[in-house]
Design a protein around this nucleic acid. Structure first.
Lengths: 252, 252
DNA sequence: ACACTCATATTGTCATATGATATGATTTTT
DNA sequence: AAAAATCATATCATATGACAATATGAGTGT
């Protein structure tokens, strides 16, 4: 399985190359507004000095950030931080960086809105295109979510797996591309509060997910769509409650 | 206004840096399957030689492609072309490259599905959040689409402007990020067939778009959603007809 | 006042050398 | 003979120093 923010979060693995370290620090600094939108970054030399890397590494890091739309370099002018609406918000790294500073309720709301637009549609497409093998796979994943032994972490992983499987079954490559978005949303929700806290929560979640697979298996587009909407709505509600209960935990 | 594939297509501007040339050629080669998924690219040195650039430039280009998820480098192994589902399909460049080789009907269908999931939702959100200024702006754009003097190009630009304005009015940054996707879809549709060919086509398009703004202005979420669905459905239908009529034009 | 030239600062490109890492062959050990 | 450890090697990663291209703004001349 690929290494996403959720796995990184859980495993804490951080053995990385010099290049990606610079990318991470610079990326987070830009996202957090430490280098505000519209301003010019320090020059290559100064940044290389500051990060204690060669200009080669620094420039490659800049190209990486430029590819994600965060910055745009111009000769003699400098490298400017681009407007937010040019950032590729569907990029896995950018999403991760967004959550690094702290959890922004507005941002989570926006992600929920996107999921609300996307995933029910994906479920409906899955009802059309899913193979029998994919259906039984999804069912296994949905059932596995009900395991009462789940820790918050393992539940989040199981949750992610299920939603990615649905996206896969939709047979639309764009839906699969939204995987990183789903991942970021689950990380955010998971950091706030996990339904794994109480057994009934787990059972509810599992049951709701199983219902999605049942509708897909029945080839009922509208049913699958509705079932998915319920799941996302529940997740969003949990976020709202958690933020209201303990807004001070939102800094972690 | 920012330089997107649509503008590039029309203006034909191509004054670019050595770096971006390599990125473009390599990117297109990967997307087209010239370097198949899962295979190892030629080494740095050979590629640098082939493109007649320094290894520095080549490596920076590779970092750009890696940032978009197309390739992943590993020491001693080589640089591997990643699986398609790791590609960031919402990246403006990747979308452009997809259309460069020729128009793939499946791909256009997939984009239409995504638009169908996204834009009606964006219209509904716009019905909630749009300011009066935004509404009158959208209305101006919708009316401007009805100008009978439109060339296929100018109509495509007007079309794009409108849909981006709706995304903007949704007040959700992710919706705005989908701009590049909309852009790619319009380029594809526009290359196939333009409603600017006949006056009735133009009037129809304009009328349908005005209806969206009316619903938004009325703060009618469901109405805005439905009106947007109509517009996207019409566009998709035009693509289907064009492909059936003249599949041999699909190579341009 | 206007147009032109030029110094200058910053990114863009180049060439070369060394380090880090993973593979596969080789050697050593059991 | 089998397994483990070692080593050569190929590839990417990093470093360094130099020069080229470019856009700004000051300076110059008309």
């Amino acid at each position: 399985m690929r290494r996403g923010p959720l796995e990184t979060l859980i495993t804490g693995v951080d053995t990385r190359t010099s290049h990606s370290q610079v990318v991470d620090v610079l990326g987070r600094a830009i996202i957090s507004g430490e280098f505000p939108v519209g301003t010019i970054l320090p020059g290559d030399q100064e940044l290389a000095l500051r990060f204690k890397v060669s200009r080669t590494v620094l420039r490659e890091a800049m190209k990486t950030l430029a590819a994600k739309g965060l910055i745009v370099p111009r000769a003699r002018i400098g490298t400017r931080v681009t407007a937010r609406n040019q950032w590729n918000l569907f990029d896995s790294d950018i999403l991760t960086w967004h959550f690094h500073n702290g959890i922004d309720e507005d941002f989570l709301t926006h992600i929920s809105e996107v999921r609300m637009a996307f995933e029910p549609h994906a479920a409906a497409l899955a009802a059309i295109h899913a193979t029998e093998a994919e259906i039984s796979h999804m069912m296994r994943l949905a059932v596995a979510m009900g395991d009462p032994a789940h820790t918050p972490e393992s539940l989040a992983v199981a949750d992610l797996r299920f939603h990615l499987a649905v996206a896969e079954a939709s047979a639309n490559p764009f839906m699969r591309s939204v995987g990183s978005l789903i991942e970021a949303a689950l990380v955010g929700i998971f950091k706030l509060s996990s339904p794994a806290a109480d057994r009934e929560g787990i059972e509810d979640v599992s049951r709701n997910h199983i219902r999605i697979v049942e509708q897909i298996s029945r080839r009922d587009e509208a049913g699958a769509r509705a079932a998915m909407e319920v799941v996302i709505r529940v997740g969003r509600a949990r976020v709202r409650v958690a933020m209201d209960d303990a807004p001070e935990t939102a800094t972690g």
